[in-house]
Design a protein around this nucleic acid. Structure first.
Lengths: 340, 340
DNA sequence: GCGCGGAACGTAAACGTTTTCACAGGAGCT
DNA sequence: AGCTCCTGTGAAAACGTTTACGTTCCGCGC
């Protein structure tokens, strides 16, 4: 069938041990024989059988990624970041996404065993009990953007809180006092943090009593409704901060429909910086999430865990920064401000 | 270290062979002992070591995907389609994307050997010589959207030609006669097919001499420039069909800047149906590409190849359909028309 | 009672590597 | 010269499975 190390050994008149040493660049083989072996291997198009290698090495050179069913941009950016960082280290990426329920996720997770050296987990189903049940203790794992707060797992989060805080502060700095917030699905961890950031910034400005949170569910439509609701309020808000861009865009429609000027009458801001944000009218101020960087950092962290000796101290929970993207919809001058 | 089949065997007072048989549902083991073994395995949280299994089985239950550095929406949709179809069959997905050059792609491809049962290849670098050089003959492979026309490889394409043809025909049916086409990067296979579809539709309508192709490179900016160019033409086109949506959007800006009405004066259409297309003003008519379906079909095809006996007849080159999405920018009434 | 077949199970080989250990031979030392 | 110590190499074990092949035992028919 396919060519094995034995074939190479036979053709080069050496033992399999020498072939292994030569090809892996180990010492104990003369430069001359190494060259000969290399040539034979190339001529035969020998490629080591990875399964056999990892059986003995206990390394698969592969990391697994357990992901939820994400909407387009976020998903691809995250994978891109992870993949980029992985290939830089000669690692492969085994992905499994979009499992509907916890059972499916569990199956996927278990089947990863013996197939990967480490795991990146970002899943709404992955609560603490789930992890305890399905994660072998020995497998290095990094939780991405998870609500699990256990000390036992490494975790990496988006700075939802900081981003929302910064945007709220920015709106306040522009003289807006009555800032309304459009919430997302309450079960969502990111949403909670964004809302918290908004509330704290308001509180710090002594405007806690003016904070008002309108319901939403991340869809454009819910943003539209929230916009209508805001317009009906007395006194009317002078700014609306939505927990994501799609809702902010829906809100913009509601305002323009009501002949309310943005940003003159009401400023609008979103969160995520989806590609569409700069094309709506007026272009949307938002908080940019550096998703690819989130993926990269997660992978790097994971690699450190894999390579670290068992007694290495666990690293603290880490946070990946956001950027404030100021466009016309909030009345500031266009800038991008990076935040650690 | 981790628990192996031997541990299970010992705890259940049977041999490893019986454990293997019981867990794989083979015959030759009583229902009673099977139950006992299953219980012990569950209690010990035994998970078979995949490397060992695939070493002897010659199956990895994994398929590899070699992808280029794609822009967001396309990439994620494709992966989603592939992953969905893969998991439905209990297969895993090993991805490797965004390699800058052919050498990187070659390394990635070779390292997949012994790690996957089959390969999905979508890469600009994958020309025929490249494939001959780096693909082992035995590995089932499906080329996605490739310009390689070899009989030796299975292939699956997007119906770029048909989509462009249909859109051009649609514009003609609305009474437009002077339709200009904004081209993309010429090396791109999809672009060539889209342009060909446009030209043939024009020719069929007896308007071959009115066909005009403006240069572009898929960016919004190049669409803007092409729009300016079109405005300067005498006689002026009454419709502009861009090879992708981003250029169509750039073109819209150029028109609105020049106070030209869309679609009254000039109709505009794009290709891809990116999410943004429905939000620009006016909403953009475009050709929707069923990317997830492309991924699914590719995987299904690959699975058939893997399972087929060697002497099975090769399937013909296949094409995945597109949909005409009619919105306000071309003046037709809003509809989505599916095309096989 | 004896032979025979089949079911249940165990033993061991095999998969393709890496790695430990042993061995040979030569160099360097006393 | 004899000893030790390296250095290059080969033989063989090990990794955790699956599976071909034995072995045992039971029940059946004669």
């Amino acid at each position: 069938m396919s060519v094995t190390i034995k074939d190479v050994a036979r053709m080069a008149n050496v033992s399999v041990a020498s072939v292994s040493r030569a090809l892996n660049g180990h010492s104990g083989v003369t430069a001359e024989t190494q060259k000969r072996i290399r040539e034979v291997a190339a001529r035969l198009r020998y490629v080591p059988h990875n399964a056999a290698r990892s059986l003995i090495t206990r390394r698969t050179q592969t990391i697994g990624a357990l992901l939820p069913d994400l909407h387009g941009a976020f998903f691809s950016e995250l994978i891109r970041g992870i993949d980029l960082a992985a290939r830089a280290r000669g690692l492969y990426l085994l992905v499994s996404s979009s499992h509907g329920d916890a059972t499916e996720a569990a199956i996927a997770l278990r089947a990863m065993q013996g197939r990967v050296d480490g795991l990146l987990v970002m899943s709404p189903h992955a609560d603490e009990a789930f992890l305890d049940e399905n994660l072998p203790l020995v497998l290095p794992t990094v939780l991405i953007n998870s609500h699990v707060r256990s000390e036992r797992h490494a975790a990496l989060d988006l700075d939802d809180f900081g981003g929302a805080y910064a945007m709220t502060e920015h709106l306040l700095s522009l003289g807006r006092k009555r800032i309304a917030f459009i919430n997302g699905p309450e079960v969502n961890h990111d949403v909670q943090e964004r809302c918290r950031g908004y509330r704290e910034a308001m509180a710090k400005a002594g405007l806690a009593d003016r904070a008002v949170v309108l319901p939403g569910d991340f869809t454009e439509e819910s943003g539209y409704h929230a916009g209508k609701q805001a317009l009906a309020m007395v006194p009317r808000p002078d700014a609306i901060f939505a927990a994501n861009d799609m809702m902010a865009i829906g809100c913009l429609s509601a305002l323009s429909e009501a002949q309310v000027r943005t940003p003159a009458d009401i400023a609008v801001a979103g969160f995520d910086d989806i590609p569409m944000a700069r094309y709506v009218s007026p272009p949307l101020s938002t908080v940019r999430v550096r998703i690819a960087e989130l993926g990269e950092s997660a992978l790097e962290r994971l690699v450190r865990m894999i390579e670290a000796p068992d007694d290495a101290p666990p690293e603290p929970r880490t946070v990946v920064g956001t950027e404030l993207v100021v466009r016309a919809s909030c009345g500031g001058s266009d800038t991008v401000r990076r935040r650690a």
